[in-house]
Design a protein around this nucleic acid. Sequence first.
DNA 1: CATGAATGAGAATTCATTCAT
DNA 2: GATGAATGAATTCTCATTCAT
Lengths: 199, 199, 199, 199
Amino acid sequence: MGSTPRSGGSEQGRRAPSRKRADARRNEQALLEAAAAAFVESGVEAPVREIADRAGVGMGTIYRHFPTRADLVIAVYQHQVEACAHAGPTLMATATSPYRALTEWVELFVDFLTTKHGLAAALRSDIARFQTLHTYFLDRLLPVCGELLDSAAAAGEIRTDITALEFLRGIGNLCIGGDENYDARRLVALLVAGLHTAR
Amino acid sequence: MGSTPRSGGSEQGRRAPSRKRADARRNEQALLEAAAAAFVESGVEAPVREIADRAGVGMGTIYRHFPTRADLVIAVYQHQVEACAHAGPTLMATATSPYRALTEWVELFVDFLTTKHGLAAALRSDIARFQTLHTYFLDRLLPVCGELLDSAAAAGEIRTDITALEFLRGIGNLCIGGDENYDARRLVALLVAGLHTAR
Amino acid sequence: MGSTPRSGGSEQGRRAPSRKRADARRNEQALLEAAAAAFVESGVEAPVREIADRAGVGMGTIYRHFPTRADLVIAVYQHQVEACAHAGPTLMATATSPYRALTEWVELFVDFLTTKHGLAAALRSDIARFQTLHTYFLDRLLPVCGELLDSAAAAGEIRTDITALEFLRGIGNLCIGGDENYDARRLVALLVAGLHTAR
Amino acid sequence: MGSTPRSGGSEQGRRAPSRKRADARRNEQALLEAAAAAFVESGVEAPVREIADRAGVGMGTIYRHFPTRADLVIAVYQHQVEACAHAGPTLMATATSPYRALTEWVELFVDFLTTKHGLAAALRSDIARFQTLHTYFLDRLLPVCGELLDSAAAAGEIRTDITALEFLRGIGNLCIGGDENYDARRLVALLVAGLHTAR
DNA sequence: CATGAATGAGAATTCATTCAT
DNA sequence: GATGAATGAATTCTCATTCAT
């Protein structure tokens, strides 16, 4: 979270090519956070003005940085997807078993989705509008999830009749909604348990 | 239920109490079909005009038959929910085991949801507008599902740490979306498998 | 009220030119009463369906009897205006003074208006739609009111600088609205008092 | 009031805090004038689009400036109500008698109402929607009118059996409508004359 | 570059009026 | 003649998007 993989904090130090660039980046960051919050509360179709107000900028600024809504949505989730993607290899290296690594990664993913679940709505949107988001999402997470599944499968710990894509989408769907009567974690745990091979 | 005012199916035989009713009934049927289709494509918030156009009627006709959107949504799903509710006891009586009955009922339910999955969207809508639908839905299916779960639990075939409500909602969520890369049946099967007690 | 000046109840007895005529007249009467009531509650623009429902007839029946709304409005008030018109000469003949006759007639008129005050709204409506009503209204009441004013003026009891038309409209306006904080009678009384010549 | 955020009238002199405000203010003014005109012709329920068209702006602009219809109605009449309220004390100080002050204030009030008489319609509207308007109106004028009446009453010049509220409403009603055959001024004068105690 | 005022298309809802039965 | 189902125009309100400042 907040990990910007490529630059290590030297931004303040350099003579920006243009002073404006720093402001713009600050605005962009504020917008991403505002949009993330708005998406949680109102879904990915949250009114532009609401996002602008949360970010403390004008609506025009949103359009400058993110010409289409898809651009904004992608930017918002890219960040979190990135964090999730990075967690995969780490868990595979540290967990006591492939299945355990899978379980823990899924928990991370669910934690992410349940707090930012506008994502689920965005992902299942069949509109071309969100195709880019969908694509990016899968580009980053599918390989990670695939490796976790493959490892566990190779260890004979899980069934092999499900694809990583289907698995991810199932988890995503289970994370939609949620209140005192619905705990996505519990249901996803059931799903993962169902994957476990009987001994 | 509610639309056959006075008699039990002998309508074709008698001199219709009012000829007009025939037209109205035809329209109502057309509306239900149009709405079902619209819900699948656009969700339960599909524009009134779209539904009216699909049904080939004016918008006012929708309001005459279904004063609120909840009325329409309920009417659309009522038949299928009813069928599902009736299937529970039947399966419990005929299946080879409680767990098997549960499995088969869930399959029926999933078949229903995957074709009319706008339902899922409606059910997770937190808007007061759909409270009635939600209530009806639970009134009919929760007891049935609860009994199936109880029977299987009593037979020691499934875990007992999940409520019927949560289970139903989980299934509902898994049924959202679906294409060549996503088979809700497979995922729900996984969920049910996860419920199965290890031997 | 209810006075049908020209026929004295012999309707039941005669072989109606057509049986339907009796039904139709009954419907018309029901409609007039229903409309009067509806106008009181919702004004002269009360929904057609409301009036039809109150009268226990279909909407089409209204249109048959009163092709335009103006026709209905006129018919409704004609009745009461008639009663008011008749009261003028009577009061002039029986009251103890012309001014007293005027006062009492105004009280009758106000009683009428305050209960059926949709009339005021109709009368001040500048639309051509209600021109006919306006005309009829004045045709019947203006002469009566004029005579009452003339008599009182001739007796030197009132000022002469106001026309009957203006006076009537003033009364009509004062009768618009009315609740615990507004008693049209009291205000009209003030108006009439203002008309009284100081001795 | 409320639209001059920070300073007391020195705006012309300073570098405008925001140039945009000028346009907005111009639009607001245009809207007030358009609404006033529309109210006179069609009453305070004049269609939003009509007002927008008259003002030469989009409908959204109305909602930006005046979120509810009550806001618009109040804004339209506020200025005139304010002027009327201020006139009360002035007249009491300068008129030759309390009754004379009352008479002159009423004339002012009537002048106002007869030009903007949509107000009367608004005030007698029992809809909750106009509660705010009603409240504002009474907050400003009732005390003024009350003092005028009290002074005249204290001087023994008028009757005491009428409340300021009833009196105001009566005047308001008399100001509804008006053409060559109806002069509200004359009728209100009659009302005020009726209030005068006989000597 | 940023702002936020303005625009106007889109959706819901109500009701007068028509017309098939 | 009577009925009431159906129609669709009228109206309100919301927001994405543009653009003047």
